[in-house]
Simulated scan of single mutants.
Amino acid sequence: MKILLTNDDGIHAPGLAVLEEIARAISEDVWICAPDEEQSGMGHALTLTRPVRLRKHGARRFSVTGTPTDAVTMGLRKVVDGKPDLILSGVNRGANLGDDVTYSGTVSAAIEGALAGVRSIALSQVISREGAAGPETFAAARAWGGRVLAPLLTTPLPPRTLVNVNFPPLAPENVRGIRAVRQGFHDYARGTVVEGRDPRGFTYYWFGLEAIEHTLDHGTDLEAVSEGYVAVTPLQLDLTHHASLGALAARYAP
């Protein structure tokens, strides 16, 4: 099996090293193409207004001066010898739950893979603010990654779908299991805008993150992780709200 690895935290991120461990337990035919530096929150951005450069860091290990989407594009077209059988994106440092998937470079890299017709899976390690297993740990992802991926390698998936995996912020022995769940939604939009002044006296703004209160709907990724389970969520790229098509069609009928 030929596997392409990528992420949004950058080529030197510790989560990518964990992902490589997980991938090499599946196959020795592993290729890496990731952004040069952190690209968190880039979503499905594609670099169009400047050139993208490809850098080699060793055998089958490359980085790009661009976004996670750029990395997958370059991986498929310029790096991997032949079409990969699997694309793995992550392991992201932090959650990609609920509607946050629309911001996520980790998930968007998997989206790009799915658009190319490759089985694609995004993996993220939720980080506990209380540091239940240490604020920097990927222990749950390392221990549970293989168990999560094994069924996903053979489960039939429709075209233009991908799978989003989130590991809870727990020591491996405290993880309660794996749940297949739907995408949840946060109760309100997150983020603050912090205003400051640089040394030259110019105003700047910095987008911040803050804790969000959740009303945990049953059967969602948010609920599963909060209860100590690995959340496995299939996502589709068809964003059409099919239930509204009839009403809109009637509005435009001659």
Rank of each mutant, 00 (worst) to 15 (best):
residue 3 I to D: 02
residue 4 L to R: 11
residue 6 T to H: 00
residue 7 N to W: 00
residue 8 D to T: 11
residue 13 A to H: 09
residue 23 A to R: 09
residue 23 A to G: 02
residue 24 R to Y: 03
residue 24 R to S: 04
residue 26 I to Y: 04
residue 30 V to G: 05
residue 32 I to S: 06
residue 43 G to F: 02
residue 45 A to P: 00
residue 48 L to Q: 15
residue 50 R to F: 03
residue 52 V to M: 03
residue 53 R to L: 09
residue 64 V to E: 04
residue 64 V to D: 07
residue 65 T to E: 13
residue 68 P to F: 02
residue 73 T to L: 12
residue 79 V to D: 02
residue 90 G to K: 09
residue 91 V to E: 05
residue 99 D to W: 06
residue 100 D to E: 15
residue 105 G to R: 11
residue 110 A to W: 05
residue 117 G to D: 08
residue 118 V to S: 08
residue 134 G to C: 05
residue 135 P to N: 11
residue 136 E to S: 13
residue 137 T to I: 01
residue 138 F to E: 10
residue 138 F to R: 09
residue 139 A to R: 13
residue 142 R to S: 09
residue 142 R to Q: 12
residue 143 A to E: 10
residue 151 P to N: 13
residue 151 P to R: 13
residue 158 P to H: 12
residue 158 P to M: 06
residue 160 R to L: 08
residue 161 T to P: 00
residue 162 L to C: 04
residue 173 E to C: 05
residue 174 N to G: 13
residue 182 R to I: 04
residue 183 Q to I: 07
residue 185 F to C: 10
residue 185 F to P: 00
residue 186 H to G: 12
residue 190 R to K: 13
residue 190 R to A: 15
residue 191 G to S: 11
residue 208 G to H: 05
residue 219 G to I: 01
residue 220 T to F: 01
residue 225 V to Q: 09
residue 225 V to F: 01
residue 238 D to G: 07
residue 244 S to M: 14
residue 247 A to P: 03
residue 248 L to N: 10
residue 250 A to E: 15
